[in-house]
């Protein structure tokens, strides 16, 4: 297929957006009874990075993990069933939205304690190195995670042992309601923290999927050729509330007009305009994409809703491995 890569970038972002919108829409039914941290507005980072990863490359993430999971090829039905707490969920309902897993597709884990998957991802990558595997690990983290001690400990070790890992920092400027300005020294960039550990860094616009994609291609080349870690910082923005299905701009914790500015920079809309201008895709094809995705989403929600809850025996299973 002509321009397959570009079309995939668009399709994958659109699919994540539509999944998240449907979750937001159905959340009030109170059947998805777990906290959800939706990725709307941040799709380009997940897609631009994951489109360059092999199936056996590993991805790890944090609380806002849906986009990363889906971009890495995570099973949509299993993810939604997990949100519904069903036995067909990717963790049989034990984890919920904040503990997605799809080993088949190289999505190892996501956890809500900020920064905590970073060292674990470094360990997984270190194992690849010791096993002389060519696979790499990508760990997604937010700006908040770069304030955790374990972030610095992980950078030090990754650099010390030349571990094949790609750190992707999605800087969306807010941790819950707290602006970066009240949390980090304004004169110091996040990427400098990685640089100061001797780690190659890239910075860029996280709403520009082409830029993210190009940067990731270079980063992976560097990791594989130089056998060293890379750190990417990408600026992006969360459209909805920190946790939950709604907007929360009316609370006034963000500057007036800040959200509107970022919505104008919608990663999906802007990329759509680019690929239409370049005749990579037609409006008809896009309509078809929307239909396909809608139908997949309908099927997947039906699957999740119709699946059964886990049996009581599961409560005491998997505490220890025999």
């Amino acid at each position: 297929m002509l321009n397959k890569f570009e079309k995939n970038l668009y399709y994958a972002m659109l699919r994540i957006r539509m999944v998240e919108e449907r979750i937001a829409e159905l959340y009030s039914e109170q059947e998805m009874r777990c906290p959800v941290h939706l990725s709307i507005g941040q799709e380009a980072v997940a897609v631009g990075v994951c489109e360059h990863l092999q199936k056996n490359d590993i991805v790890m993430s944090a609380h806002r993990a849906h986009a990363h999971y889906l971009a890495k090829g995570g099973d949509l039905k299993a993810m939604l069933a997990e949100l519904y707490g069903k036995s067909t969920g990717c963790a049989k309902g034990k984890g919920g939205s904040m503990h997605l897993i799809d080993l088949e597709n190289g999505f190892f884990a996501a956890v809500p304690i900020v920064g905590s998957t970073i060292p674990i991802a470094v360990g997984v990558a270190w194992a690849f190195k010791m096993k002389k595997s060519t696979n790499i690990v990508t760990v997604f983290l937010g700006d908040g995670a770069t304030e955790e001690g374990v972030f610095f400990e992980s950078l030090d070790f990754a650099s010390l042992k030349n571990v094949p890992i790609l750190f992707v920092c999605e800087n969306n400027f807010y941790s819950v309601y707290s602006n970066l300005k009240v949390r980090q020294a304004p004169q110091r960039k996040i990427s400098v923290l990685a640089e100061s550990h001797g780690i190659k860094t890239f910075t860029g616009d996280g709403n520009d999927v082409q830029q993210v994609s190009k940067m990731t291609r270079e980063a992976i080349k560097f990791i594989k050729n130089m056998n060293k870690p890379v750190f990417i910082e990408l600026e992006t923005f969360r459209w909805l509330e920190h946790c939950g299905p709604n907007g929360d701009d009316e609370l006034g914790y963000r500057e007036v007009g800040e959200l509107e500015k970022w919505i104008k920079k919608c990663p999906i809309e802007s990329y759509k305009n680019t690929i239409i201008e370049k005749s990579i895709v037609t409006e008809t094809e896009i309509t078809q994409m929307i239909e396909n995705i809608s139908s997949e989403i309908n099927d997947s929600f039906n699957f999740a809703k119709e699946s059964v809850f886990p049996k009581l025996e599961l409560l005491n299973q998997h505490i220890y491995k025999d």
Binding site: P119, G123, V124, M130, V150, F157
Partner: peptide, 26 residues
């Protein structure tokens, strides 16, 4: 030294790192 090694004074980080390495065959 690839199997028996010193470490940085990063107790939390190193606990995560050995957890990660244990997920991948060690």
């Amino acid at each position: 030294e690839h199997r028996v090694m010193d470490m940085p004074l990063s107790e939390n980080g190193m606990t995560g790192i050995i957890t990660g390495v244990s997920l991948n065959g060690f």
